[in-house]
Design a protein around this nucleic acid. Sequence first.
DNA 1: CTCATTTTGGAATGGTCGTTCCAAGTGAGT
DNA 2: ACTCACTTGGAACGACCATTCCAAAATGAG
Lengths: 208, 208
Amino acid sequence: MIVPDMIGALLRGEKLMPWEKKFDKAATLDRALEAFWSHGYEATSMQDLVDCMGVNRGSLYATYGDKRALFEAALGRYDDDRRRMLSNLEARYEPRDAIRQLFLAFTKDIDPNGGNKGCFLTNTALELAAHDPEIRALVSSAQADLEAFFKRLIVAGKDAGDIPEHVNVLDASRTLLATLLGVVVLVRSRPERALLKTIVDDALRRLG
Amino acid sequence: MIVPDMIGALLRGEKLMPWEKKFDKAATLDRALEAFWSHGYEATSMQDLVDCMGVNRGSLYATYGDKRALFEAALGRYDDDRRRMLSNLEARYEPRDAIRQLFLAFTKDIDPNGGNKGCFLTNTALELAAHDPEIRALVSSAQADLEAFFKRLIVAGKDAGDIPEHVNVLDASRTLLATLLGVVVLVRSRPERALLKTIVDDALRRLG
DNA sequence: CTCATTTTGGAATGGTCGTTCCAAGTGAGT
DNA sequence: ACTCACTTGGAACGACCATTCCAAAATGAG
């Protein structure tokens, strides 16, 4: 019963027996994320998830618990990606370019004929956050995180002489947050490239 | 069979016989609007609607058709209210104040503990507009209408010397649109008065 | 009062929901 | 070959879904 990798597996927090095949948790969770992201919580049925994840119902419940828990796992996964993305932008770009790249990430590759997914956290903000304190806390903290991201970059930009001194850090970062949220609303409801470009360009123009 | 009011009723597009009692269509539709506005399309069941509208299932289907049609009626009703509201603001306030009042309408009376309804059109934009062309057209045109509202007021404000000449009409009106959409997202997910006030004040500061 | 018409409460329908359960299959270890 | 844990497909569950239908009650002009 005791196998060589047991302690290592324990340390990594995995289930014990190393011969368990298990489906690729990360890959299937990504598929669930896609479904929830595209259609929302209520409009995605467990049957939809079984179909699109390619995993059996039983395994699905055994692995993630119920639909709510699976949704939270998907949301957490998206949140991790978002966190990683912000951190990459912050590391790789000049402050003002990092902000531009963030806006670009949501506005490039949009389909003018609709069907755009927008931002999963924002979709969830409107579908569930108002009546669900747990979801609201998660979404709210992601938004606060984004605000802090803007704050750091604006300060850094001002230090680098990239962003004018007269820009108010708190005002600008919160306005950027609101603008980005507005943009991802428009991506789902009025996906016109010219419209989005106008908004993004105008937002960046304020930073110098 | 032919009664005095028949022609008048016909002209008004009503059903013929004048002795039909009929429940108060406007009042019950408002209750349906409340339910859809608060919980969204998918999360509101016909049973919920029967309960909160105080109308029998049969009458409900006879009057509005199916759930989809009832939702569209509620959305149309909300859209009419919105249209009327914009027109009132435009008539009663100075340009810049009209814009301020619009933002105030969405941010005053918010509950920091959640449960805020935000903007029905924006909630619908994220829940349904991406995959439903008909809904998207309606939401999209309401947003374009709002953009036009901002445009007119900015032009009027510039004429009145209320808004500085250097403000670009297209840029500013679209940015105001995005900002307002961002605000109504935050109202549902991060209802902090200070946060919203910062954003609204900053948006208005751009107009002089 | 009469009677056409609507409203009402609720039963009925067929489908889908989320969830549980299980018999059979799979594959790495011994 | 045998074991053990997991996976699989699918059946089964009760609840709720949107929708239809109906007999009984209410309504109001004649």
